[in-house]
Amino acid sequence: MKCPFCGHDDSKVVDSRPTDEGTSIRRRRECLKCFKRFTTYETVERMPLMLVKRDGTRQPYDRQKLLGGLVKACEKRPVSLMQLEQIVDNVEQRVFSALESEVSSKTIGELVMEQLRSVDEVAYVRFASVYRQFKDINTFMDELNTLLKDK
């Protein structure tokens, strides 16, 4: 591992432990030339996942784009970034465990809404309104009535 301070190619691992989520390994390293310490993270390399949009176009799955949509839906709501990251982690786990190289945006959206509904109902309705592209107030009311009926 190259030292970020002096660029030397060799370092030693001083400490190694799993992260809190258990999805990566945190390694504390020491440069063998300048003796400064730095941290690296080791994660499992996942196969690339293509997202199939409604219009049939394909684009690479982007975790940050999904997280950004959730952040917008939860704006001014009592939902932490940690909760949103957990939702994305849960969705990714289900999608990647299917071992498919493509997933529809509809599948991703439904998985997100399933998770978001139990976290914050207002954020759920906001996300659903964009995701389901409510055409008018009646479609919006239908979703609200479904939400109220399921309570």
Results as ranks from 00 to 15, higher is better:
K33W: 00
V125T: 09
G22D: 11
Q64K: 14
V95N: 06
I137A: 08
V119P: 04
I137L: 12
E30H: 02
L111G: 07
Y124E: 08
E100K: 15
L84H: 05
V44N: 01
G7K: 01
Q133D: 15
R29L: 08
F140H: 04
G7T: 02
L99V: 05
K12H: 09
E30Q: 13
L81Y: 11
Q133C: 08
L32M: 13
N138Q: 13
V91F: 02
R28Y: 07
L70Y: 03
T39M: 02
R26I: 12
S118V: 11
L116I: 03
T57S: 15
R27H: 09
L111I: 06
D62I: 02
V44R: 04
Q64N: 15
E114R: 06
I137W: 04
V88H: 10
R46C: 09
S24N: 03
I87P: 00
G109A: 06
D20E: 13
A128E: 04
S104F: 09
Y131T: 14
G69L: 07
D62S: 13
K135D: 15
A123Q: 07
D20R: 10
H8S: 14
D20W: 00
A73I: 02
L70M: 06
R126D: 06
V71M: 13
V88S: 07
D136E: 11
P4I: 10
V122M: 05
D55A: 04
A123K: 01
V95L: 11
Q93N: 09
M113D: 00
F140M: 11
R126P: 10
T107P: 00
D136M: 08
M50G: 14
K149A: 15
L148A: 15
G22M: 10
F96E: 06
E143I: 00
M47W: 08
D20P: 05
R94C: 02
M141V: 09
A73K: 09
Q86N: 11
D89C: 03
R117G: 05
Q115N: 00
I108D: 06
E92D: 02
E102R: 06
C31D: 07
A123W: 10
D55Q: 08
V13M: 05
G109F: 08
M50V: 11
T43E: 12
K72D: 12
R94Y: 01
D15T: 02
V79H: 02
S129Y: 11
L147M: 14
R54S: 14
F35V: 13
T19H: 11
R27K: 15
D89G: 05
R27I: 12
D20L: 08
D10G: 05
Y131S: 09
A123V: 03
V91H: 03
V88A: 10
L51S: 04
P48W: 05
L111W: 05
E75R: 15
L144Q: 06
R46Y: 11
V91W: 04
F5V: 02
K65C: 01
